[in-house]
Design a binder for these strands. Sequence first.
DNA 1: CGTGAAACCGGTTCAAA
DNA 2: TTTGAACCGGTTTCACG
Lengths: 165, 165
Amino acid sequence: MEEIDRRIVTLLARDGRMSFTDLARETGLSVSAVHQRVRRLEKRGVVRGYAAIIDHDAVGLPLTAFVSIKPIDPAAPDDAPERLAHLAAIEACHSVAGDESYILKVRVASPVALEDLLQQIRASANVSTRTTVVLSTPYEHRPPAVAPDLDAATDTAAGSDGPAA
Amino acid sequence: MEEIDRRIVTLLARDGRMSFTDLARETGLSVSAVHQRVRRLEKRGVVRGYAAIIDHDAVGLPLTAFVSIKPIDPAAPDDAPERLAHLAAIEACHSVAGDESYILKVRVASPVALEDLLQQIRASANVSTRTTVVLSTPYEHRPPAVAPDLDAATDTAAGSDGPAA
DNA sequence: CGTGAAACCGGTTCAAA
DNA sequence: TTTGAACCGGTTTCACG
């Protein structure tokens, strides 16, 4: 992957609805060239999709929390992610190093809803939970700082060097 | 906020580039009615923006971690979020209840880059850090389960009437 | 707040280099 | 892989109910 693709990714991460016309202007390419590159990035999975960023407060889910989970029976097979996938309140599930096995990010309507969710988590995955409640969120969803050299992470075979843009 | 707005929010959260034409079909409204509603949701701040979902591995940032921070001097004013905002590797900053004051979600290129970032965090905000490395991410960015009744939260983001523009 | 139609602009495809 | 042009579809605005 090279310079222009990184630029495109950065721009789309900042504004997922940016038009190809604007993308073209920002990159110095033609509209159809940009179009082709975006398609390729999508097909390759570099761009995994597009999402509206929602204000959870406005949508009835003002309570965010991080729930760390630990299996009650360490010998049992680790199915937690699949067992918990049906719980829509869980926004993300990360397997982590450390004392606990997963960190879940959850969004609920109220403390009672959180209590209920925790019970469902424990029952569904046979785990114990440790919950850290989010009080406020100074910032979130900041676009990634796309690295200068990506070649180590991509299989691109662009041989020639691009001209200065 | 009512049924149709919730539907629109849900659909846009799943696919931030869904066309107004498709949105109209899914909601049973005309294209211009949907257009008007989306604009209003954006203006009200319910829809805060749109973003491409990027594969961090493909983009040279394969290492994710959660960094909990605690002020070294508890008496000092708590400026951490602003002091850390310049570090692009920090994707999110949540103020939390519990032993530590903030949880940061960070994305870096390598263990060395993480080490460097931690030093910058400590130096910039005068805090101690506790880092939990993410090993894998079964899922992330799942769309919010927009609640059935939102009226209790409707006035959170903005007043019902927009101010003079 | 909803609608349909008109006008405009962006998205998409294409042949050529 | 790029480009420009042509075509088509979506976006946006409008007058009206």
